[in-house]
Design a protein around this nucleic acid. Structure first.
Length: 343
RNA sequence: CCGCCCUUAGCUCAGACUGGUAGAGCAGUCGACUGUAGAUCGACUUGUCCCCCGUUCAAAUCGGGGAGGGCGGACCA
C-alpha cells in the first residue's frame, strides 16, 4: 500500500492528529495503536463510529489493541460497581467484537486486554506512585475534566484515572493513542509525563464526538439522544424520526453525522449506495454514492429531513443489525452486566 | 476523637422556626403548528419527603436513635 493511502486511512474521520509529523515518521514502520474503553454504561452508536475506525487501522496494517479498562470504570465515581466489572468487561468485549465484525474487519486481528491484567504489576504501580508525586491536583483535574464525572466533592479516583491512562500507553507499548476528542486532556498530560518514565510520547488520534439526536452533544444519560446497539429497527426509526434535524443545516445534526461517520464508510467498504425512497410528489427516489452528495443536497434543501430520516433509519438499522443479533443471542451477557435493567 | 451542616419529583431546590399527609423551575408525556425534528403555544404526569422509634387527633415539619454525604477542629508522640 502506498504511503499516502495508508496515511489517509489512518487519519480519515479524525478530529485532530497530534502531531502530523510524528505520525508520518511512525508510519515508516508498522506502529501499534490502542484505544481504551471503561466498561460502564451500555454501548451505543457513538462507540460504533469510533470503533469503525479500527477497521481502517487494520487495513493500514497497524497493530491494534483494545483495552477494556475495568479498573477505570470503577475509579471514575464508581460508574461501574466493583462486583460488575467482570460481567461488564465481558459484555464490552463481545459488543466490540460484534462492531468490528459489522464494519467488515476481523476482530481476531485485534488484541483485547483487560486493565487489571497489567495495571497491578509492580513496575506499573511504582510508576504510578512516582507520577502521583510529580503531578499537582489541579493538573490532574484539568487533564480529566472532560472525561471524569464532575462533582462538588470529587473522589481521589478521578485523579488517579488520568495518571493510569497515561501509564497504559507505556504498559501496552503503544505508539499511537486513539480516542474521542474528550480524551485530549488526558493524553496531553501523558505526552508530558511519559518521556520522564521511559516511554516516547504517544502520537494522538482523536475522533470527533458526534451530536446527539436531540441536539447538542450525545449524552449517556439521555436515552433519546443516542441509538443503542440493541435497539430494534422500530426503535431506531422512532429515535431518528424524533431527532433534531433542521432543514438545510449541518450543525448539530446527529442524523447527518451518523451517516458521515458510520453509514457511508461501511457502505463504501461494501460498494453500496445510499438510497432515499421519496414519494413521487416530492421528486421520487434518490441515490447517493457519497456523504458529500447528501450534504450538498441537504444544504441546498433539495433533500428534505423527513425523506432523509426514513432512509437514514433504515441504513443505521442495517448496520447495527448484526451486532444487535449477536448480543440478543447471548442474553446472559447483558443480564449479568446490567442486572438492574435486565433482571 | 470532637463539633457543625446536608439528605424532599429524573435533575436543581423551596417548604421545617409558627405540625393539618407537598410545591417551583428544568426534564418528560400528549396535542396544535410546520411535509421531520426543534422553537412557540396549550394541556398533563411525576414522590417509600433517607431509615427506625417516639410525642400528637394529626409529623416532611417536633424529640430520640441510626445510615449515607459534606465541612471544620483537635491530635501531631
Amino acid at each position: 500500500m502506498d504511503e499516502q493511502r495508508r496515511y489517509d486511512l489512518v487519519t480519515r474521520y479524525t478530529e485532530e492528529v497530534v502531531t502530523d509529523d510524528e505520525l508520518e515518521s511512525l508510519l515508516e514502520d508498522s506502529p501499534s495503536v490502542y484505544i481504551g474503553y471503561a466498561p460502564t454504561g451500555e454501548m451505543h452508536i457513538g462507540h460504533f463510529t469510533t470503533m469503525r475506525k479500527l477497521a481502517d487501522f487494520l487495513r493500514a496494517d497497524l497493530d491494534v489493541t483494545v483495552l477494556i479498562a475495568d479498573l477505570h470504570a470503577h475509579l471514575d465515581s464508581e460508574k461501574s460497581p466493583w462486583d460488575l466489572l467482570e460481567a461488564r468487561s465481558e459484555y464490552y468485549e463481545e459488543a466490540i467484537r460484534g462492531m468490528i465484525d459489522a464494519t467488515g474487519a476481523d476482530p481476531d486481528q485485534i488484541s483485547f486486554v483487560r486493565g487489571r491484567e497489567f495495571q497491578l504489576d509492580e513496575e506499573y504501580t511504582m510508576d504510578m506512585y512516582r507520577m502521583a508525586a510529580e503531578t499537582t491536583v489541579a493538573r490532574a483535574q484539568r487533564a480529566g475534566s472532560e472525561v471524569v464525572r464532575e462533582s462538588e466533592s470529587p473522589n481521589l479516583g478521578g485523579l488517579i484515572y488520568s495518571l493510569m491512562q497515561s501509564l497504559d500507553v507505556k504498559a501496552l507499548d503503544a505508539d499511537i493513542a486513539y480516542g474521542g476528542i474528550d480524551q485530549r486532556g488526558i493524553y496531553m498530560l501523558g505526552r508530558e509525563l511519559l518521556p520522564e518514565h521511559g516511554h516516547d510520547a504517544p502520537v494522538c488520534l482523536f475522533a470527533p464526538l458526534l451530536s446527539g439526536l436531540s441536539g447538542g452533544k450525545m449524552s449517556a444519560s439521555d436515552a433519546a439522544s443516542k441509538v443503542n446497539l440493541t435497539d430494534s429497527p422500530e426503535e431506531v426509526e422512532e429515535k431518528i424520526n424524533d431527532a433534531y434535524c433542521p432543514m438545510g443545516e449541518l450543525e448539530d445534526n446527529g442524523v447527518l453525522e451518523y451517516l458521515e461517520y458510520l453509514v457511508f464508510p461501511i457502505l463504501d467498504e461494501r460498494g453500496e449506495n445510499f438510497v432515499v425512497d421519496r414519494p413521487e410528489e416530492y421528486g421520487g427516489d434518490l441515490v447517493y454514492e457519497s456523504y458529500d452528495q447528501v450534504a450538498e443536497d441537504f444544504v441546498a434543501e433539495d433533500l428534505h429531513p423527513a425523506d432523509l430520516k426514513g432512509a437514514a433509519a433504515a441504513a443505521i438499522s442495517e448496520v447495527i443489525d448484526p451486532v444487535r443479533e449477536r448480543l440478543t443471542d447471548q442474553p446472559e451477557l447483558l443480564a449479568e452486566a446490567y442486572p438492574e435493567k435486565y433482571d
